[in-house]
């Protein structure tokens, strides 16, 4: 077996491209570069965590401590901000609303995206490439473009201020994304598996549910991660399509600024709480994430 490096001619001596270093030098250099890369990564992670730490720090302080003095950690540790959120239904309902429409959106999206992605990965049909491109353009359409018609549309069909309205609206970018990711994963499953199953007498639905879906489990996990991510972080559409009953947490957070100033402690605590579901989701898919981010195509 020979290893032909990409971008080199067959038979080209690697030595002409690569420098000459003795093994002893290499070992020393490896240890040094390893240390250096850990150091750089450490610096990056610290810088990355710093703004989040600051939010957490503020959420555990009283407003007077926040405004009074610069403290690197909470000196009078208080959970009042969190207690305030969890005992006030107008606050915690924001989380319930957000989670409700995110889950609905994930369910709808995955149900319609799985068969569609299968069609794109296995069959060619009239207009398939153009359909695929049209889907991707929806991924790229700025939600701001659709704000007003959305409001009108959902108002006229009587879905305004419901969870399902936001869930359906988020399908605009989540379905194309899901199809894009799933198609990559499905294409990496050999087609012989389908053919064998059909020969064995499986019907399409049974084959799809019993054999195919288990085979792309990690792909589905990663897709759900992305669906969660983009539905959870989006606010513009969610805000436009809701008024009181289905208001997302991101919108309720704007209430912290009142005439008497901004309630920094509560704002920070609410912010920290919006990060938690994400951590939970990422924890569940941590084993698939590295593979999944390549969207099945590498």
């Amino acid at each position: 077996m020979s290893y032909q490096l990409e971008n080199t001619q067959p038979g080209e001596k690697y030595n002409t491209i690569f420098s000459r270093i003795t093994p002893a030098q290499r070992r020393k250099r490896n240890a040094r570069t390893r240390l250096r890369s850990r150091l750089l990564l450490g610096i990056y992670l610290v810088l990355m965590i710093l703004p989040i730490y600051w939010l957490l720090n503020m959420s555990l302080q009283t407003n007077s401590e926040i405004l009074g003095s610069m403290t690197m950690w909470p000196e009078n540790l208080t959970f009042d901000n969190y207690i305030g959120i969890f005992t006030n239904s107008s606050w915690y309902m924001g989380y319930v609303n957000s989670i409700a429409y995110v889950l609905m959106n994930m369910l709808i999206t995955i149900c319609v995206a799985l068969p569609a992605a299968y069609a794109f990965s296995r069959y060619s049909f009239i207009g398939d490439k153009h359909l695929f491109f049209w889907l991707l353009t929806n991924l790229m359409a700025p939600p701001a473009v659709f704000l007003l018609p959305y409001f009108q549309l959902y108002y006229s069909v009587g879905l305004f201020d419901t969870h399902i309205a936001v869930a359906l609206a988020h399908c605009l970018f989540n379905i194309p994304l899901a199809i894009w990711i799933l198609e990559g994963f499905m294409s990496s499953v050999p087609k012989e598996i389908d053919e064998t199953a059909y020969i064995d007498g499986y019907s399409f639905p049974r084959f799809f549910v019993k054999i195919f879906i288990p085979m792309i489990r990690s792909g589905i996990g990663v897709t759900l991660f992305f669906l969660f991510m983009f539905s959870w972080v989006e606010l513009l559409l969610a805000r436009t399509l809701t008024a009181t009953d289905a208001q997302p947490i991101g919108m309720i957070m704007t209430r912290t600024s009142t005439a008497s100033g901004i309630d920094w402690g509560t704002l920070a605590a609410a912010g920290v709480l919006t990060i938690l579901p994400g951590i939970l989701v990422v924890y569940f898919v941590r084993h698939h994430i590295a593979k999944g981010f390549a969207l099945g195509r590498t």
Binding site: W264, V282, H287
Partner: peptide, 25 residues
């Protein structure tokens, strides 16, 4: 795993909260 989870953290924060975090920061 630990680095992966830490690194993906900013991606999962609602966009307006990202704004708030930096506004405060």
């Amino acid at each position: 795993s630990a680095v992966l989870i830490l690194i993906t953290l900013p991606l999962l924060i609602p966009w307006n909260v990202v704004g708030s975090i930096w506004q405060i920061f």
